[in-house]
Design a binder for these strands. Sequence first.
DNA 1: AAAACTTATGCACACGTGTTCATATAGAGG
DNA 2: CCTCTATATGAACACGTGTGCATAAGTTTT
Lengths: 339, 339
Amino acid sequence: MPRQVPVSLRPHRITAADVARKAGVSRSAVSRAFTEGAYVDKEKRARILKVAADLGYRPNALAAGLQGKGRSNLVAIVTGDLVNHYDGEILARMVRQLTAIGKWPVVLNAGDEIPDADVSGVLGFPLDAMILRGGSVPDDVVEHCAKLKIPLIVSGRILDRPGIDSVCCDNERGSALAVEALIARGRRRIAYLGGQADLTSDRERRKGFLDAVQAAGLSPVAQADGDYSFDGGLASARALLTAHPEIDALFCANDAMALGAQAVATCELGRTVPESLSIVGFDDIAMARWPTIALSTIRNDMDMTVTQIMRLLAARLDDPDAPPQTVRTEPEFIARGTH
Amino acid sequence: MPRQVPVSLRPHRITAADVARKAGVSRSAVSRAFTEGAYVDKEKRARILKVAADLGYRPNALAAGLQGKGRSNLVAIVTGDLVNHYDGEILARMVRQLTAIGKWPVVLNAGDEIPDADVSGVLGFPLDAMILRGGSVPDDVVEHCAKLKIPLIVSGRILDRPGIDSVCCDNERGSALAVEALIARGRRRIAYLGGQADLTSDRERRKGFLDAVQAAGLSPVAQADGDYSFDGGLASARALLTAHPEIDALFCANDAMALGAQAVATCELGRTVPESLSIVGFDDIAMARWPTIALSTIRNDMDMTVTQIMRLLAARLDDPDAPPQTVRTEPEFIARGTH
DNA sequence: AAAACTTATGCACACGTGTTCATATAGAGG
DNA sequence: CCTCTATATGAACACGTGTGCATAAGTTTT
């Protein structure tokens, strides 16, 4: 009974050899038919492509990426919580830009905590690069990338280490712009509603705030920590405004917290914005310009950020040993209805 | 002059052979040291892992995935525009769930148009599965997946074809719930603010709306098309409310459009919500519950949806030839402040 | 003591591709 | 006619891994 059908769970994927057999050519020819500028008879190539299309064949990207010189075309993106609109919007841009240049983004969602094992695990792939959005960067990840010679591009903070490129908004300048705008509106009792105090972005924004307030001859009424989320901003603002009712302006470390602060101030504490309380955010997420929201904020230009990330990526792929680059993007005050 | 240093652009990634050489063992041993339950001397394994850690070695996932039986652990996710909050929030959940079971999500952002070439291109990888979020599904993609035997899981619409699993909200029922709630509030001149009319979700929600209105003995005042975006909802609502000032309720095909409609109604047309105009959305995105928003809407349970997607995925990986499954999730009316 | 079984280990193969190498054919130019 | 160049083609190798196979050693059972 030689009726031994080889049962494979995964039904045999069409391979170049299959196409070659069916088209009556060598396997090399099939590979060449899919390679731009290779020596293949024009008519023969057409026939091969026809057969390939019929069979539904396409070159296995894993096998192709295994080749020494070729790149895997995989790029890992480690992002923060996507419910945070800034991260979502910037991710969308990155994904589109990457696919446009033939790279495939493998996305890791950090959420609030750092997915150490995940980030470490994805390094099993010979990534063309890794893009780290904001947050704290675990040291061992940096170490791994360095050992594996995987280019690391950090956005949202500056990391001054060899082989690591960074692009980040000039946070201190942004804070200064916000404080200036608030003072121009006659505000004098300004508080800072911060994010996680251990993040570089918060440290810089906080420092910029304190410096600017001091430079104006004022002193900050209060400071609070949050977690860059709507709910966190709401809770922190509640505590802040209850303990210090004299506050007449809130500068928030990002837009989500600003919206949370606005919610608690207007819906719960009976304040009116901007009459009895000014609020300024940071980032300029898409909804900040909605008429019903109209949030005054500091623009953290996402298009520019992503453009720079892509530029750094291209440069790094071109020359892995080039000195690390650091880019600061320019913030801008966007006057709307809450200040 | 035999000083021929082999110059490779990509600095040689550490390989199992390197570890084997340095640890004085065979390459097989290295592989086994990283394989759970393989026969290796306990002490030997420890030594190998130590050397591997020192060298920064980890098994190349590409080579591993090339193995016949093993899976690549790559899962493609095709999503809509992430500025659309529903897509962003559901993507975040999927990414987290997938990484939790050791799958790596390759994300394609459809944006408004269908990235035909991209979707086709990612099929070069021997994907474990492909998850398609909403929208229209190009037929040739379905065809390709079928030929390549790549499991396809569609969310946001039902696709009744062999080997394709679907999970989708019971849209008609959701619309009926919305209409009921509006009628209970005394509304009689209800209009439908739809999304792209060629999408299944819009067709079903529209049908559910029309049926429910008719069942209540009313007739719909008007219908309009949008594009599921805030701006689209705003523009459509402006046209709708201007042409039909008698409208006293808007049922919108998703939350983003509902918020756009609210913006134009209150900020531009002098209507008050809900006093002179009721608005009900669909999806229940995170911000719908913000006190400043308080959008009455139909919950399209994301946790349940993702749970079901993961369940279908597991089942499909377990048995590729199982009959296709279809899941309808139950919608729920969430009463807040806009109806 | 013999047999059966568990553990350990290296060799060799398979995965599917891109590409080098050698070889062959054809055309052009002297 | 000979040489040189451009084009075409198949065999063979390399990429890095997991694992089947054969073999050896150690342990338990009969």
